[in-house]
Nucleic acid binder design. Structure first.
Length: 111
RNA sequence: CGAGCCGGCCGGACGGCCGCGUCGGAACUCCUGUCACGGGGGUUCCGCCGAGGAAGGUCCGGGCUCCACAGGGCAGGGUGGUCGGUAACGCCGACCCGGGGUGACCCGCGGGACAGUGCCACAGAGAACAGACCGCCUUUCCCUUACGGGGGAGGUAAGGGUGAAACGGUGGUGUAAGAGACCACCAGCGCCCCCGGUGACGGGGGCGGCUAGGUAAACCCCACCCGGAGCAAGGUCAAGAAGGGGACUUUCGGGUUCCCGCGCGCGCCGCUUGAGGACUGCCCGUCCGAUGGUGCGCGGGUAGACCGCUUGAGACCACGAGCAAUCGUGGCCCUAGAUGGAUGGCCGUCGGUCAGCGAUGACCACAGAACCCGGCCUAUAGGCCGACUCGUCCG
RNA sequence: GUCAUCGUAGCUCAGAUGGAAGAGCGGUCCCCUGAAAAGGGACAGGUCCGAGGUUCGAUUCCUCGCGUUGGCA
């Protein structure tokens, strides 16, 4: 994801699942397109080195989970300050829980 | 051996599996164009390369690009011992002067206070061509038997006390008491001469007057330097005053959406007798200038691609010049170029640090390129190398 | 990339030419009240962001640094 409108769409209209280290926003459009994913790591998380590391870890974790997303997905992962000092397995666990809440439920749920 | 001082360098190493980015190659595939060669994109595989000494802060200086190649004066800003280095600097080196240290060495915005103006609180009698509070001395008056005390007039900067600072220091002559009033030496100031040095300056000699406060990181004066903006610079696709471009889609007619050129109305100024504008603020001077400039209102509008983009005052190694900063010659090498922004995940061995008798366990400094260089400053676990100084001991 | 702003008591802010710092709220104690609030009185509280420098003397002037907030492209 690389456009401001797409971030706004996912964050404002999508559903949200929060964990201590991160927040996941998810929405889906009708179009039959490949899912796109964006990351938000604010200045509150740390300095430039820390923010880069958090972003790379999240990108790595999401890459392995892309197949879980339906077509047309817009997904934004926002990092919270605890993500800076979290171990990768903790980040992965938080991410899995959040994804489970958002898309793991039956497809006829609220949308 | 201990303590210290200065400089240079490194800043984890090796390997396995899975991923990411640029570039190159191959295969497959899509779009587009030509008579033909072609152009552009996607996927997969292979290969090379892939953050720093500070990439940081943005405090200076340059390259590069555009503005009209930018002239003169004023204003404004900056620098401030000397000589050298450099593309340049507010940086670096050596030296000079002043200060600190036993020393190696360290610190200094280090021009001018007889061009002018301002300021120097409190304390103190007096604070800038100073000043009689106490004191000292002369004289006079009063009180007192006397010793002595008090008042007036005057002399006096040697002494006291205040202060950051009180108008040279010590000794003598001199005097009523004193005073550079005079003398000797010392310190300091100005001028002249000689010697050494490119120079700052240093050494020596002579003469003069006896003495001149501090502050210019207060205004200021002097010397020298400075055009402005910044890669979101700037350019190409880009044709045109009616359309053009990108992306997606298509039944190939087109459609959707975004972007660029902004569009309309009313008024004012002007079209070479020139409105307005540029050379950054002003003046002179020079130049641009008519599909023009400007005011108000309404409507529209906020980033598509590509180039610039990494070969450069370049890195390394020799030799030479120089005390050094640095420079010259030769050899050799090519070493990130992203654009929601590429270095991540898992694991092994070794290396450090800490804990523990041990098995073992935990941890790994500061910090992430964004046009590119030269400096400065700031952050930084741990480690390596070298020069030198002082102290102690041994020979 | 570039240009600014601010940093003073626990909080919000003043301050001067360089001569040593205040206000409001808050805090503590006392008075008032049967008790409290309000009111009155008294008191305490400061590395003037840090380091270095200029000066006799710096919160103020100079340099560097740290942090805060913001503007423009």
């Amino acid at each position: 994801m690389r456009k401001g409108e797409e971030f706004a769409e996912a964050i404002r209209r999508g559903r949200r699942a929060g964990r201590p280290s991160l927040v996941v926003h998810f929405t889906a459009v009708e179009a039959d397109e490949a899912p796109i994913v964006g990351f938000v790591v604010s200045k509150a998380v740390g300095d430039a080195v820390t923010r880069n590391r958090v972003k790379r870890r999240l990108r790595h974790l999401m890459r392995a989970r892309l197949h879980l997303l339906p077509r047309g997905s817009l997904l934004v992962v926002r990092a919270n300050p605890p993500a800076a000092s979290a171990r990768s397995e903790h980040l992965a666990a938080d991410l899995d829980v959040a994804l489970q809440r958002l898309i793991g439920r039956p497809r006829d749920g609220r949308s």
